[in-house]
Design a protein around this nucleic acid. Structure first.
Lengths: 233, 233
DNA sequence: ACAACGAGTATGTATATACATAATCGCAGG
DNA sequence: CCTGCGATTATGTATATACATACTCGTTGT
């Protein structure tokens, strides 16, 4: 109740953007309209919108208005890699195989680190990424159908699920857990590695607001992949 | 020349903080003093200081004033790990061995990714981190003596160089490159691993303003270490 | 001596106002 | 029809002002 006005305005605008009520590209009301809507001065609205722009949630253009930003393929701090994009940026041909696709509930066999509740409906996907025809990465993914119902209809035989998600669903937070592991015989066969070859495992959990969007474990050939991150305090 | 006033003020304050002219804990001038100094209104100064506070560069306390923040041991986005701190947080005893220490110029053998110019004076350090007496990580580091002259006098037999740097030198930007590799026989011996065991390699370059502070490659036992990062777009 | 209270003050928030800036839209002219 | 120019307009920056808030410090009273 006694929360500062500008915080309440900011929370309200953020909620509309994150809920999808104002999708990417949507032109949000002008400062003058928001001034009327919230019954405050333009300076107050202006400071809120300037803050949202600095946070990257909206883009502002003089005379045109303020627009909800497109979901960022990459951030300045640390990016969620889009594997096809990265492979092609190295001048190689990208290939993709969908190994398994199943709609089911979260079971006891799924990693508890996924943050998905047992029984929650998910789309479970297993796939393999290729660079110039050579196996490159192995991916096992769970997508929450409660948070991303549209995933049930997506054609993941053509577009890898990571790419599809980055293009269609905005995310607000992500967590990586990165480890090195020796390839098991089965994994070595899938990645065309000698058994025991070093692999880089990236487990990522992605949120949108409070709900977990997706949990994915990607295992890369250590000799073909490195992960970069640039950041500031 | 025609740069917006608030940007010039912000740049000026940031420069004083990053140069060390205003060290951590220093009470920066009151808004009223800055108002006089820059010949502008308090609102303008207030917005600049509010921005600096949101970026974490300063902390503000009513009635007391605004203070330069302590260099952050960890950031909200992605941290530079302080290995002793992490080991002890897991309930293990931390140990440290300085293997080599040499003051020299950057040579052709040093990795070009370090970003240090050939011939630039550096302190080259090699050390080993132990957790509960067991080898844990192997570290090779270059510290630029042009940027951090105080490093020449520091006692790195007691405090690991990473910890010393985090405590004494503020940084503005860092870059990680993370790879998985199979341990060479020599590395395997140093880390008490079977030859070929998977290791996680973290190469990090750290800047302060324009100058490279340090370049370090840390190789961790893959079975004992994972790297976490949590971030937002 | 010490706790409680109150004055003073730096920051926090909000408003009204003014002018600068830049990009879009529409209209006029070729 | 297409181009270019000017009017319009939403944002960007800055000022002056006002009051709220919370913390510090000094003083007062027990």
């Amino acid at each position: 109740m006694t929360a500062p006005l500008k915080e309440r305005i900011r929370a309200d605008l953020e909620a509309r953007i994150l809920s999808g009520e104002w999708p990417p590209g949507y032109r949000i009301p002008f400062e003058s309209e928001l001034t009327d809507l919230y019954g405050c001065s333009r300076m107050t609205v202006n400071k809120v919108l300037a803050g949202l722009a600095e946070s990257g949630l909206i883009q502002r253009r003089r005379r045109a208005g303020s627009f909800v930003a497109q979901p960022a393929l990459q951030s300045a701090v640390l990016r969620i890699p889009d594997i096809p994009h990265e492979v092609e940026a190295r001048g190689e041909h990208y290939g993709f195989e969908l190994v398994a696709r199943e709609r089911r509930g979260v079971g006891p066999k799924d990693p508890p680190a996924s943050g998905l509740a047992p029984g929650e409906p998910v789309l479970a996907l297993t796939c393999r990424h290729l660079a110039s025809g050579r196996p490159f990465a192995w991916e096992e993914r769970l997508i929450s159908l409660a948070t991303v119902p549209a995933a049930a209809e997506a054609d993941f035989s053509a577009v890898p699920p990571g790419t599809w998600l980055l293009r269609h669903v905005p995310w607000t937070e992500a967590e990586h857990r990165i480890t090195a592991l020796n390839a098991s015989p089965a994994l070595a066969a899938s990645l065309d590695l000698p058994p025991g070859g070093a692999c880089l495992s990236v487990a990522r959990r992605t949120w949108r607001g409070d709900g977990t969007l997706t949990y994915v474990q990607q295992v890369f050939r250590g000799d073909l992949y490195s992960l970069g991150a640039r950041f500031a305090p």
